[in-house]
Design a protein around this nucleic acid. Sequence first.
DNA 1: GATGAATGAGTGTTCATTCAT
DNA 2: GATGAATGAACACTCATTCAT
Lengths: 176, 176, 176, 176
Amino acid sequence: MSPRADAVRNRARILSAARAAFAQDGVDVPLDTIAERAGVGAGTVHRHFPTKEALVSAVIADRLDELADRAAEADDFFAYLAELVDSGRDNLVLSAALDGTLGTDGAESAARLSRAFEVLLADAQRAGLVRRDVTAAEVHAILAGVLATESRLPPDRRGLGLEVAIAGLRVSRPSR
Amino acid sequence: MSPRADAVRNRARILSAARAAFAQDGVDVPLDTIAERAGVGAGTVHRHFPTKEALVSAVIADRLDELADRAAEADDFFAYLAELVDSGRDNLVLSAALDGTLGTDGAESAARLSRAFEVLLADAQRAGLVRRDVTAAEVHAILAGVLATESRLPPDRRGLGLEVAIAGLRVSRPSR
Amino acid sequence: MSPRADAVRNRARILSAARAAFAQDGVDVPLDTIAERAGVGAGTVHRHFPTKEALVSAVIADRLDELADRAAEADDFFAYLAELVDSGRDNLVLSAALDGTLGTDGAESAARLSRAFEVLLADAQRAGLVRRDVTAAEVHAILAGVLATESRLPPDRRGLGLEVAIAGLRVSRPSR
Amino acid sequence: MSPRADAVRNRARILSAARAAFAQDGVDVPLDTIAERAGVGAGTVHRHFPTKEALVSAVIADRLDELADRAAEADDFFAYLAELVDSGRDNLVLSAALDGTLGTDGAESAARLSRAFEVLLADAQRAGLVRRDVTAAEVHAILAGVLATESRLPPDRRGLGLEVAIAGLRVSRPSR
DNA sequence: GATGAATGAGTGTTCATTCAT
DNA sequence: GATGAATGAACACTCATTCAT
């Protein structure tokens, strides 16, 4: 009752190919390229994702889901950040796309991530490791910046951006 | 060597229009739109900038020149950063494009900026306000991240990204 | 020779769905739409009608068969015309398609219709109600025109096209 | 001050090529075909007619303008009809498309035609050559039908459709 | 030098048809 | 036999670039 074995596989392959292609060449890669990478016809991409925008949203939602899963499992705010930055290193483009509209699915995934992230942040704030006046959304904006920074650092300096952000997040008030 | 007055003016108008258009709609705006905004024909844009990429590079180089000018005039590292972030707030797109190749002109402008920036940074480091193990290039990467952060913050929280970065840059070693 | 019950039913459902879809949206409706309307898969449509053209031909042949049936039963030329126009009113698209090639089946149906129609016409001509120099094929062409006219008339004027045609068919020679 | 010499010519060539292509193969001909026939690139077609629909509308409007011109010059209702049918013989497709939406220009052209046609019709009615209870719009619908009829008649019978319509339009009431 | 019309390759999307399940 | 996913050619439309005026 499920001749969908192929369909499921194709959907996954398209998603994966799209993710790689977006990361490598930006969201402007032709859909044909993605189709070729996924080993399917152009029409198949459209069957699964009626619009290019839908595909982008799906890739982002997929990524958000991963992040949400990790956030839900994590128990250490900073370790989670490190992991997140690490995994996002090659996905700057994608993380940039994060600003764009997400389909309904994306919104849901983003909400899941937010909830898990808020818990982690609150713990860290309670433990005195993060200044209390920043919200989860604000820390998220800072993380987006960290990703942008990391992508511009030479390999042997990776981690510096996060290091600085963490240090900066600890201090309540700028003295200077 | 005389009727260049118009040519010079057109070049400036195109650059200005391109800058505004890139900031508003991203680097994917059609050249026709830029030409229209500049009040010139599409062919004129190509006479001055043979390629779209050349125009993008020129806009970036132009911006880098401004930044270099300001850096050369500044005497306070942090005030300079604040000014830079402030002026760059609406130019995230452009600053993202900064990763792309710059033409030769761009390289020169970038070099000018670097030299001025290095002086400011060295002063701040000597004064003990910035950890000594970061280079100018690294601080630049961090600034790019700050711009990304700021663009994601609501208006009433603008400045938080820079604040955190400055605080983080002061601490020499991450203690955690 | 047994499980054809379903096949027969499916064929009928597809034909019916196609007829409705063509009448409503023109012959350019996607086959998928027709398949969905018929409650079958796209592949099933092709099993019954290997080509879209074949489906169109079948729908037309089906319609021609109906018309032939009615013509065979009718005994009054004008009443038959009225009925035909009445039933064809919403099928302009289909009647336009009538020009296109009909498959072999279509030719047969068309022939049946022609024979029945010729009988009716001959009767009317013998009774002096229709000029004698027009053939059945020519009256058919005129009827196609009447359908086109009717589809352009407002609801409260429906019938005018046929009325004029009937009046015109009575006169042997244009006097002017 | 008019480098538009080519532009004007191209516009005319495209319009002409489109008219011929539509008449020959229907409105579904690829734009590329029209471009090729006109001896221009595909982009040029779009510069002049931003949308395919716009091109169709323009072709129709162009045709309506011709008809309006002729109607304005004519002084004999029936001669005008004959001329119209004669010229429209190969344009059934186009006249079928006439139902579709016309752009603003089309509406204007249609209005011009209506006004001229109304004058001719009124004259004919006053002269007792056409029944008085039909409006210009209704006669137009009948003409559309005549065109449909004519396109279905063999060459040696051309004119029969108009002949019948004219005869029918003279009689005030269907007697039967 | 400037103009803007022309070009044509490239893109997203549709859809008749095929084929694995 | 039926299903619906896969295919890929075809289409309308965009846009950087070229070129006649």
